[in-house]
Nucleic acid binder design. Sequence first.
DNA 1: CCAAAAGTGTTCTCGCTACACCCATGT
DNA 2: ACATGGGTGTAGCGAGAACACTTTTGG
Lengths: 252, 252
Amino acid sequence: MSRPTNWCHSDQNPAYRGRMSSSPQSSVPEIHVAVDLIVLTLRGGELSVLLIQRDDEPHKGSWALPGGFIEYGEDLDGAAYRVLSDEASLGSGAVHLEQVRTFGAPGRDPRGHVVSVAFMALGADLPDPLRGEDVADARWWSIADLDGISLAFDHATVLEASIERARSKLEYTTLAVTFLPEEFTISQLRGVYESVWGRSLDAGNFHRKATRSEGFLVELDRHAAPTGGRPARLYRAGSGTSLVPPLLRAGD
Amino acid sequence: MSRPTNWCHSDQNPAYRGRMSSSPQSSVPEIHVAVDLIVLTLRGGELSVLLIQRDDEPHKGSWALPGGFIEYGEDLDGAAYRVLSDEASLGSGAVHLEQVRTFGAPGRDPRGHVVSVAFMALGADLPDPLRGEDVADARWWSIADLDGISLAFDHATVLEASIERARSKLEYTTLAVTFLPEEFTISQLRGVYESVWGRSLDAGNFHRKATRSEGFLVELDRHAAPTGGRPARLYRAGSGTSLVPPLLRAGD
DNA sequence: CCAAAAGTGTTCTCGCTACACCCATGT
DNA sequence: ACATGGGTGTAGCGAGAACACTTTTGG
């Protein structure tokens, strides 16, 4: 990373010299680094996000994304997993974690300059959150129900960017399986696409495209319990990560 | 931003309380925030990146990406533009700037924990860099010539991620025009795709697809000076940003 | 007239859509 | 039997690839 060449302040700010001592003598306030988590799952066929109601100023009473500061020496992913486990009681095996973008406008947090790395976490049927400290409430929100709600900080923007990222990645990656349990049917997989994209897909065509994408699915010998019709074959996720050809959402 | 809810350290570290005072009393060293720039342009039909040869430890003598620390209160984009102007003498009008990803592994800089936001900057026929302070050398490298070279820090990874991002975005956005001057011909545009993707494209088919993509190009009444054949019509960039249908690189 | 680059036309193929149709189960 | 969801077959359409062909310039 960094500091490739002329360190902009290397000759002005002692904090940037040598081994980066921990206490700069200057009175310049520090920039803080945080992670924000956009935890997405499907609840009853609805794409849903985990939000927390703030119990402190600023934005007291507003709904916000879970997040927290990064500790010195901690990996970005590690911090995201820690927040996930602290605030959503989710182990690292249960979710797919992926960096979305970093937000660092100086005015986004009224208390100071906070640079926040947004992480998207996708999981299958995640449990109801435990209420953490300093939290008035915590619960899953269906994306559709968030229309009139205004989120704290710039979290509406962050959430919007993450959802669009997820929608887009379903097209050309095998990301959809992260919304499902270990074993699943093609119908369940189609349900993921329909829920995330908000449109219905032709069952027959979807079946063909999904089963023919190299590396997407592994066929099992078992079938799911029937739900009023022919029992569906079970599959698990294949080893591939990219979907060729892609599964496009374009066609109206 | 953030700090949505239970601030992980809000009750332990005074720096995270109230208005975020600038001088924590604890002895925990600070995390520093930097930007790294992947400046890409076309030089003689070759996709090229601006690198700087380090004049200080660590990695003294190695080639690295230009970069610098973010100042308190400074926007991420603003910091990127500042580094661009300081180290590459490029004004903000000349380039397209876009965030790629943030790298924050604690061991990536031996001097301390530096979280670095990578920005990709694309421009048309950018000038040779001026040599900044603390820089042994600075020059354009053709991507192809970098094969055996090992870059400082984790910059090889950062560069690789950026190039793949650029290649991919040419498919479904109008990003290619940022590599060209204000007015250009379809052949020049095709040359961008060929250089970045490293493969040749059918001139006729490309012409049709480019001119028929809504919002991609604006046709001008003038023509370029002929180069041994029929003079090519001039175009300038249209107002659209996404390319529908996309221009895929898949075929062979 | 010839070479070379800019554009246009044409054919073939392949993937997707729509929808008909058969399969396997519960009631 | 019939309803319901799982899965396959198939005709038609539309976009891309390959390449022939026309246009417009310079030598």
